[in-house]
Simulated assay, not measured.
Amino acid sequence: MNVALVGLGATGKIVAEYLLGKNVLSMVLCRKNSHHADLDLGVVLNRRDTNIFIETCEHLERKLFENKPDVLIDFSSSHFLRENINLLAHYGVNIVTAVTDYEPAEIEKIKQVALQDKIGIIMAPNITHGVNVLMLLTEIATELMKGYDFQVLEEHHHRKKDSPSGTAKKIAAKIENIMINHLDDREVPIHAVRSGGIVGRHKVLICGEYDQLEISHESFSRIAFAEGAYKAANFINGKKGLYGMDNVFDAERIIKKHTVTDDDHHFIAN
């Protein structure tokens, strides 16, 4: 699998380092006029030369033709896919997008490209394993705690542009969808904090008249995002259609379950 990466912010650099360690990174893109342009990736990562030179998104068609990436991981901004998704689809490059500042029309355009089975796309505002477990636990709690008040709290570093986060919006939407089944059409409030160097915290607060439950997740390191991005790229490689990180981790769980079952059978046979 050959992976292209666009976006070398604080998280993008960690993702680049992780992908180098997996020997899958073959192409790194940056915006026009970026001070990273034409540098060896190793210079940006403060390590020895990698022989991967950071290229701008100009003349992208030629660069896709020459490098032939299987999957592109996007940690940049909504501008990149808005301008280039049709070109990526033309060259059969699957996409993992961890960008969270898309407008509704941009989300719809991405979905339509995937649903037309041109390429495979993972939309992943929630790319870490732990956040997906939080969502699952929240869905269970919402089913069981009819009549309780739900609120979502999220905290990120002061450089994060979107507020509230895409993950917080998704958590709230999941709660509201279940509450509607309970004939409860209340909106779930979201409280956002942008401060310091907080990597990422999400909390669901569930309050009743006499008790309270909290479900929370915190990322201590951006490596959690890199692991999620790598798993997503492996999953989407060779597929077509629209997926989320829940599909990635469901597939991983099935594989682990089958592995355990096979090991058990082997143990019994011997």
Rank of each mutant, 00 (worst) to 15 (best):
A141M: 12
E176N: 08
D211P: 00
N181F: 07
L88F: 10
T11S: 07
K239N: 09
L5V: 06
N67L: 11
I54K: 03
H258A: 13
N126H: 11
A10Q: 08
H79R: 09
N51C: 14
K32P: 01
I110T: 05
A124V: 02
I255L: 11
E155I: 08
G130Y: 10
S78M: 07
V193K: 05
G208D: 04
I190W: 10
H156V: 13
K257G: 14
K111W: 03
N86I: 01
M135L: 14
A168M: 12
N33Q: 10
N33M: 09
I121C: 06
A89L: 09
L72R: 02
Y230W: 14
H202K: 03
P189M: 11
R31M: 08
G120Q: 04
A37S: 13
A141Q: 07
S77Y: 04
Y148P: 00
I73E: 02
L134C: 04
Y243P: 02
L5Y: 06
D40L: 02
D162A: 14
S221G: 00
N132S: 07
D40A: 01
D263F: 14
D162S: 13
D246L: 13
N126C: 13
K63N: 05
S77V: 00
A124D: 02
M27L: 15
V96P: 01
H265F: 15
N67K: 14
H35N: 11
V193N: 03
N2V: 01
E155Q: 10
Y102R: 01
L134E: 05
T97G: 02
E83H: 10
L213A: 06
H265I: 14
H217E: 14
E17H: 12
S221N: 06
S76K: 03
G241V: 09
D184S: 03
F267Y: 14
A172Y: 12
S221R: 02
V260R: 07
L19Y: 10
H258P: 00
L81G: 00
L60A: 01
E143Y: 14
D49I: 12
S195E: 13
T142E: 08
D149E: 11
Y243H: 05
F220N: 08
N234M: 15
V248N: 09
A37G: 03
N23F: 12
N234G: 13
I127P: 07
I85L: 12
D250C: 03
N181W: 05
V28S: 03
F235L: 04
D264L: 15
I180D: 06
G147C: 14
A37W: 10
I268S: 04
